[in-house]
Simulated scan of single mutants.
Amino acid sequence: MKRLLLIATFVFLSLAGCSSIQEAYKGNPTPKDFLSNDKADIFMCEGIVYSNVEGVKWVLELDYTIGEQIVEIKKQKKKAFGYRDGNANKLPVGTVIYETNTPVLIAVVDGEEIPYLAMLEG
């Protein structure tokens, strides 16, 4: 009986330790992390979520050069399930996203350049 209790305790502690490790490492943010906020403006490219950073002061001060097209928005999607590269929640279908010589990507909508930044876990 003591042996069974000892094994059960060991299994319980092992499982509790694994879940703590998983909580400590969550990885990069996903669309689910943003789409519950009505103000979120995101798209996905190469498995990474990019968020609108129009109001970020240091971004507004960047002197960037637009480079090559990296993705075109293929689908507008409000739900996180099945969110893929080329999906956006607010950008219209057909919007072209360009790389720059900075960490910022640029979406061009009706001639307006909108900056987006990768949402990466530190």
Score class of each variant (00 low, 15 high):
121 E>W: 11
55 G>N: 10
73 I>A: 08
95 T>G: 09
36 S>D: 09
85 D>Q: 09
116 Y>H: 11
77 K>A: 05
61 E>T: 09
104 V>N: 01
83 Y>C: 03
68 E>T: 14
117 L>C: 07
84 R>P: 00
31 P>L: 01
51 S>Y: 01
57 K>F: 09
81 F>I: 10
104 V>E: 01
111 G>H: 03
97 I>E: 05
117 L>T: 02
22 Q>A: 15
96 V>A: 08
20 S>H: 14
14 S>E: 06
36 S>P: 02
53 V>I: 08
40 A>Y: 05
66 I>Q: 05
107 A>D: 05
48 I>W: 00
31 P>Y: 08
13 L>Q: 10
43 F>E: 05
92 P>C: 05
80 A>N: 06
120 L>C: 02
1 M>F: 09
3 R>T: 13
25 Y>G: 00
54 E>V: 14
55 G>I: 02
73 I>F: 08
93 V>W: 09
80 A>K: 07
67 G>A: 04
91 L>K: 10
41 D>N: 10
18 C>Y: 12
24 A>C: 06
39 K>G: 00
75 K>P: 00
104 V>R: 01
79 K>W: 11
40 A>F: 07
108 V>F: 03
11 V>F: 14
102 T>K: 07
45 C>S: 11
76 Q>M: 14
10 F>G: 07
1 M>L: 02
27 G>S: 10
119 M>L: 07
93 V>F: 07
16 A>Q: 13
46 E>K: 15
114 I>L: 15
46 E>M: 08
110 D>G: 08
30 T>W: 06
5 L>W: 09
91 L>T: 05
112 E>N: 12
3 R>I: 14
61 E>L: 15
107 A>S: 08
93 V>D: 01
66 I>Y: 11
101 N>F: 03
68 E>W: 04
96 V>D: 06
75 K>S: 11
61 E>V: 00
83 Y>F: 15
32 K>A: 12
41 D>H: 12
36 S>W: 11
37 N>G: 04
52 N>H: 04
16 A>P: 02
10 F>A: 15
40 A>H: 13
71 V>F: 00
23 E>S: 09
45 C>M: 08
121 E>S: 14
32 K>H: 07
64 Y>A: 04
35 L>S: 11
20 S>V: 13
13 L>H: 13
54 E>M: 15
64 Y>G: 02
50 Y>H: 07
18 C>M: 08
33 D>I: 13
96 V>W: 02
42 I>N: 10
102 T>R: 12
22 Q>I: 10
69 Q>F: 00
119 M>I: 00
28 N>H: 10
47 G>S: 07
91 L>W: 05
22 Q>V: 14
122 G>Q: 03
85 D>E: 05
53 V>Y: 00
95 T>H: 09
82 G>I: 11
96 V>I: 14
49 V>C: 10
101 N>T: 02
88 A>F: 04
81 F>P: 00
89 N>H: 03
17 G>S: 14
65 T>L: 02
49 V>E: 03
85 D>G: 14
79 K>I: 13
83 Y>V: 05
68 E>Y: 10
23 E>L: 06
